[in-house]
Write a protein that binds this DNA or RNA. Structure first.
Lengths: 136, 136
DNA sequence: ATCCTAAGATAGACGAATTCTAAGTCAAGA
DNA sequence: TCTTGACTTAGAATTCGTCTATCTTAGGAT
């Protein structure tokens, strides 16, 4: 959105109609679209946008740290614009719906030094699974 | 291995040369092979084994609960024979090496009811990331 | 020991998601 | 306005996995 576009421009990101539309599609809470969904929504506004551009733009936004890549199933990756506040994901085992959740405490603290095998552990990613109210 | 093959036979699993070889390839600690790697190793012993059979067999072993499917990156799924004791995974951000780890406490406990959105949360899967000693 | 047959194996076609390539287009600084 | 390197495009190619039609075989029945 405006915020995001401002920040990107400030970083010297060259602004184009395609990039603007992709960034605008990825706005809101609990948004977890696949690349194809992003492409479909972007194409509503900019019919000639190509898939390759959507992939390129998503990849750049991930590299810039402005969005997150989420792979909750073996299917297509999803893109999460909520990269500013750390959070985890709750996924419905039946329909695949994803919600952002905030567990208490730091998941990293649960991994004792003896279980780190000399790794410099930097992050922990938690996926909770269960049935959502609609699928129960 | 023997243990696994015994158990499978006891469950009425029809034994074939192909299935035996796949089960034998998936033996040991910290083993996390892709389907293609399983196929390559199986083919060393049984050159005519087909990819489809490896996929079929892996799928059956997952259904039987004898191995686990692990997706730590957006790439190929990996198969983990350590399905008996619950554990999580520690992945090297550089080379992709995977280790089985055992965090303290139950990760489910860290998710408050208010953060469950009415879901019947059943499991939590944690992926720790960092640099391994070799890549540091 | 041999036969039968459903379960398993095979090669290769197919499909989804993603990446690559070569050529055309354009944002933004000079 | 001009220039140029960065961006976009269509479509081919790649990767990972599934499906299909046909052939083979494990293991119970005879």
């Amino acid at each position: 959105m405006s915020d995001l576009l401002e920040r990107l421009r400030g970083r010297g990101w060259r602004m184009t109609a395609q990039r603007r539309v992709v960034a605008e599609v990825l706005d809101g809470d609990h948004v977890h679209l696949t690349a194809d969904e992003v492409h479909a929504r972007a194409a509503q506004r900019l019919p000639e946008i190509s898939r390759a551009t959507v992939y390129n733009t998503l990849g750049e936004l991930v590299t810039l740290g402005e969005i997150l890549e989420v792979a909750t199933d073996g299917r297509a990756k999803r893109y999460d614009p909520n990269a500013h506040r750390p959070h985890q994901h709750l996924v419905c085992s039946a329909c695949g719906t994803i919600r952002d959740v905030h567990p208490t405490g730091d998941p990293l603290a649960a991994l004792p030094a003896a279980e780190r095998f000399g790794f410099a552990v930097a992050s922990a990613e938690v996926t909770y699974r269960g049935l959502c109210p609609d699928c129960a």
